[in-house]
């Protein structure tokens, strides 16, 4: 979690960037009553939300929840069947060049010209937005691809391609950036590396909207998240508030041999206790009472405490059964 009070972001029209003293560039996005149907399927069903300038906003949901379709309507790739999207009072589906110059979009990590090097991709996208050639070096630096500048995109790793496609989205210094599952199919190192890039983008005051189905990612990056399923928004709040709202019990695990199961039951009171060769686990809604009692018995070695995560919120909302 970032040490930032997300409610301030929501209420302040200046956004975080301005509050922290950065230049204000982010735009405001207002989505109202968005609907998109494909045949009988309501892919997006009455979706409304507002993204404040400078906010990092996440659209979260399982595959087929309608995240990408929603994002495509916000970007202007699809005209909403009903409802409206406004980015600073422009309707994106009209594809006004003036608005498009303020938007950075990353669609798929493979959206490159064939057989061009990383540098040539950036030069080409730069030319489409009319930016000076010097930006290419800046962007290569920012996403850490300086030593890959002469490598063709086909020969880059998945993480490098993702970073390059984000660099292509940022080449014209946009005020708002849209990212569709930017970390899909990346290994843990590459994901964390990309998170740093995304944080830097947002820290300079840009509005960022991303879709993801990684809960940890949303929890780490986003000021607010909208959890979507079956075309609807189920919850919309800061990750912390969503987790608190779940009122889920905390799991306190003890290493094997630190405490007998009977002692653990005594400490737990009525709370459930499970024991196996991995250790003993107490599941409780009163962690402070249990932890204090454990400390008095000097049983804190090898102890771990796990609270609920956004993933628990997500599973609570969307159900646990597997959907192919």
């Amino acid at each position: 979690m970032r040490g930032r009070d997300a409610t301030v972001v929501m209420t302040s029209p200046q956004g975080v960037g301005a509050r922290l003293g950065f230049r204000l560039v982010g735009v405001e996005i207002r989505v109202e009553g968005l609907v998109m149907t494909y045949g009988d399927v309501r892919a997006v069903d009455d979706v409304s939300f507002t993204v404040a300038p400078g906010e990092f906003f996440g659209l979260l949901g399982p595959n087929g929840a309608g995240k990408t379709t929603t994002l495509e309507m916000i970007e202007g790739l699809r005209k909403p069947q009903s409802g409206s999207v406004r980015i600073d009072d422009h309707e994106p589906w009209r594809r006004e060049p003036a608005l498009q110059r303020r938007m950075g979009v990353q669609l798929q990590s493979s959206s490159f010209f064939e057989r061009l090097t990383a540098r040539e991709q950036l030069d080409t996208f730069g030319a489409l937005y009319g930016v000076a050639a010097g930006r290419t070096d800046e962007m290569l630096e920012q996403v850490g691809l300086v030593d890959k500048a002469g490598v063709r995109t086909e020969d880059l790793s998945g993480g490098q391609k993702q970073r390059l496609s984000i660099a292509c989205a940022l080449i014209h210094d946009p005020e708002v950036v849209f990212l569709d599952e930017p970390t899909a199919a990346l290994d843990p190192q590459a994901r964390r590396n990309l998170w740093d890039v995304l944080r830097t983008i947002n820290a300079s005051g840009r509005t960022v909207v991303l879709t993801t189905h990684h809960m940890d990612e949303a929890e780490v990056l986003c000021d607010r998240v909208a959890i979507m399923d079956a075309g609807r928004i189920l919850e919309l709040d800061t990750p912390a508030a969503l987790v608190r709202g779940l009122d889920a019990p905390v799991r306190i695990s003890l290493a094997p041999g630190t405490l007998s199961v009977d002692d653990a039951r005594a400490i737990a009171g009525g709370d459930p206790v499970t024991a196996d060769d991995q250790g003993t686990t107490i599941t409780t809604r009163e962690p402070s009472r249990v932890l204090t009692a454990l400390a008095q018995r000097d049983a804190l070695d090898g102890l771990s405490v796990k609270g609920a995560s956004l993933e628990d919120v997500f599973l609570e909302l969307t159900g646990r059964e597997y959907r192919a």
């Binding site: 498009q100 979009v105 798929q108 493979s110 996208f125 937005y129």
Partner: peptide
């Protein structure tokens, strides 16, 4: 590879 849509969102 999505480049067609990407170009559609460029101001050209």
């Amino acid at each position: 590879n999505g480049l067609l849509r990407r170009l559609r969102l460029a101001p050209i």
